[in-house]
Structure formats: structure tokens, C-alpha cells
């Protein structure tokens, strides 16, 4: 998992914001993970757990407090403004609010075409001329399912939320990035539109050979799209495992509680009360000592307050930061678990 061939490698990422009087919000604390080329990494957690902040820190907006973000071996954190700028086209991001992420005063062709006109001279790409840029914009708009002829001259407010998200995706893809960070891309959309956008993202991933980091609070959505899933709680990484392993045999009590909270669309099922989370999310200004989840954890013991658990492997590919995981560490993974990894 920690091999050097990772396309994107986040190491010891820390993001903190000062909130006055010397106090600070620990938005992301010491988070490390790798993203392999071509995979989709899901990042889940409840609101305020730092998943969006981590996503933004990867593209250096704003720059993280410490840690490193290695993209193809280059540490983005260490680059100065202009060097970082040259990397920007290769890492793109789409946002939660499709309307807010499009400039209301600009036409779709400008919104999608601007990145090209900014970069065409510098990158010596094949889109140097105006006609070529226009053709490229039309191509990308068509790829995201919009009619280039009728859409190009319109402004964002003439589109629905789902269509705006398609425009956002087109804008991100027009520079042909390697990594696409999706920050809650479907949370603001209707469920039926969500499915369309997710299908679109899958299709674009195949067509443009993208690597996705998919941030969401919706476990069902993440399960659907991700190869591996990272679970975050209060700025820390709790568990990182292949999607099907994580959903079948969660190792962290928090993951288990999250999975138990997915509503079943079946009135015959009586909701179980066991394993449900109680209590409030602690403040990230003054997080609990030791394990940050211990204040709400059904399995918490004294050790959890004293000693911070580190991420360790409990099954092949399944790593968890917990002293008392639900899946006990085994010296060698059984064959059936290993076969699940290949999915």
C-alpha cells in the first residue's frame, strides 16, 4: 500500500486554523494515505471531520500547515507559487455546490474554455488556436452530456443543479487532469440526478483515465464508486480498506456505527439500537486525548484516553487506527479476504 508507485501520496497532512487567543481548529491531524493511478479512493465521515479540508489541502487551497502531498513524486507543499501553478492543470477538483462553483456572469463556453485559453500557450498543447479551443470545449461538453450548440452561449442560472454540476465536470476535465478530487459532488442534488452524475463520473474516469478522490458523507454513494474507502473522524483517519471489505467487515467501531446508520428502505426492518452513535461530535478546537473517537466509542477503555492508536494493518489492505478493532489482526490474511482485494 505504501509503495512508491502511488500517483498521489499524502503524508502526515496537518491543517490547522487559528481561531484567536492562541487557539486553533485541528481540521486535519496527521493524515496519510496513498492513491494509486486509476483507482477511486472514497473519503467518508460526518460533517466537520475534515474530509473536505483534506481534499482542498491536496490541491493546496489553502496550503496545509504541515505534511507533504506527493504528486508523481513531487512534493506540492514545497513548491513555490509559480512552480505549483504549473502543476495545477493536472489536479482538478469539483465542488459540492454546483451553482456557487460557476461564475453567474459568464457563459458556459467561457467557463469551460477559459482554462484552455490560459494554458494553451504555456503547455504547447494542441489547442492553441481559437477554433481548436472551441472544438475542444464542444467535445468536453458533449462528453458530459450537454448539447454544445445550445449550452455554449448560456449562463449558469439557465441550467438545473445537475446540469451545472456537468458544466463543473466539463471545466475540470478540459485540461485533461490526472487526478480529480470530487468534494461532495452529488450532495446538493436530487437522488435521481445523483445517480446520473455518478454514472457520468465513472464514464469520465474511464474515458480520460482519471484517478478519483471521492469525498462524501453518503456511505451508499461512496460504496458504489470507490475501490478503497478512507473513514475520517474529527480530523483523523480511522480506517482505510478496500470498499467491499470495509462494508462487510468494518474494523473500526466508528466505521461500524456509520454503516449501522445507513437507513434501510424497508419498513419491515426494525431499526436496531445497538451500535448506534450517541453524544455530540467533540470540538475540533480541543479534541479528546488519545483516540479522538473514545468519547463516543462503545469499546473505549482507559488505554484509549492515554495512548493514541496508530494506523495498523488488520487484514490485507485493511488498516485501522484502533486499540480494540472489531477485526482482530491476523498474522496472515486468509485466502477469502485476499480474493476480495482484487475487486
Amino acid at each position: 500500500m505504501t509503495t512508491n508507485d502511488a500517483l498521489l501520496s499524502v503524508e502526515n497532512l496537518v491543517v490547522e486554523y487559528p481561531v484567536g487567543r492562541g487557539r486553533k481548529v485541528h481540521a486535519v491531524s496527521d493524515v496519510s494515505f496513498d492513491v494509486q493511478a486509476g483507482e477511486t479512493l472514497g473519503v467518508v465521515g460526518e460533517s466537520g471531520c475534515g474530509k473536505s479540508t483534506a481534499g482542498k489541502a491536496i490541491v493546496q487551497l489553502p496550503r496545509p500547515t504541515s505534511g507533504s502531498v506527493l504528486f508523481e513524486g513531487t512534493d506540492l507543499v514545497k513548491l513555490d507559487g509559480d512552480q505549483l501553478r504549473r502543476f495545477r492543470p493536472r489536479l482538478q477538483m469539483i465542488f459540492q455546490d454546483p451553482v456557487s462553483s460557476l461564475n453567474p456572469r459568464r457563459r458556459v463556453e467561457d467557463i469551460v474554455g477559459d482554462p484552455l485559453s490560459v494554458w494553451s500557450a504555456e503547455l504547447e498543447s494542441s489547442v492553441a488556436s481559437k477554433q481548436e479551443r472551441k472544438a475542444k470545449v464542444a467535445e468536453v461538453l458533449e462528453a458530459v452530456g450537454l448539447d454544445p450548440v445550445s449550452a455554449a452561449g448560456r449562463r449558469p442560472h439557465e441550467f438545473s443543479g445537475g446540469q451545472c454540476q456537468r458544466i463543473s465536470i466539463a471545466r475540470a476535465l478540459v485540461l485533461e487532469p490526472k487526478v480529480l478530487i470530487c468534494d461532495e459532488p452529488v450532495s446538493a442534488l436530487d437522488v435521481s440526478i445523483q445517480a446520473q452524475i455518478i454514472n457520468l463520473l465513472e464514464a469520465m474516469k474511464a474515458r480520460f483515465s482519471l484517478t478519483l478522490v471521492f469525498i462524501s458523507h453518503d456511505l451508499a454513494v461512496v460504496r458504489n464508486i470507490s475501490d478503497r474507502v478512507a473513514v475520517m473522524y474529527l480530523g483523523k483517519l480511522c480506517e482505510l480498506a478496500p470498499s467491499d471489505v470495509l462494508y462487510r467487515t468494518p474494523a473500526h467501531p466508528y466505521t461500524a456505527a456509520l454503516l449501522a446508520s445507513i437507513p434501510e428502505p424497508d419498513p419491515a426492518i426494525v431499526p436496531s439500537t445497538t451500535g448506534r452513535l450517541t453524544g455530540e461530535l467533540p470540538s475540533s478546537i480541543d479534541p479528546p486525548s488519545g483516540c479522538r473517537f473514545r468519547t463516543r466509542c462503545p469499546r473505549a477503555e482507559e488505554r484509549c484516553a492515554a495512548e493514541e492508536p496508530v494506523l495498523r494493518e488488520v487484514a490485507t489492505g485493511q488498516r485501522v487506527a484502533c486499540h480494540f478493532p472489531l477485526v482482530e489482526a491476523r498474522p496472515a490474511a486468509p485466502a477469502n479476504v485476499a480474493s476480495q482485494q482484487s475487486a
Partner: peptide, 26 residues
Amino acid sequence: QREFVTAARMMGFRSRRILFREVLPN
């Protein structure tokens, strides 16, 4: 603070362009 400004920065637009092309018209 709107996300289209963040998006513009992410796409490597320079500050002057963001100020006059993205923010000013609004």
C-alpha cells in the same frame, strides 16, 4: 469566498485575471 473563485485559482489563473474577469463583473 464563492467556489468559482477557488476553482479559478485551482485552474492556475493568475490573481489579476481572477480579480478582473471573475470577481469584478459580479
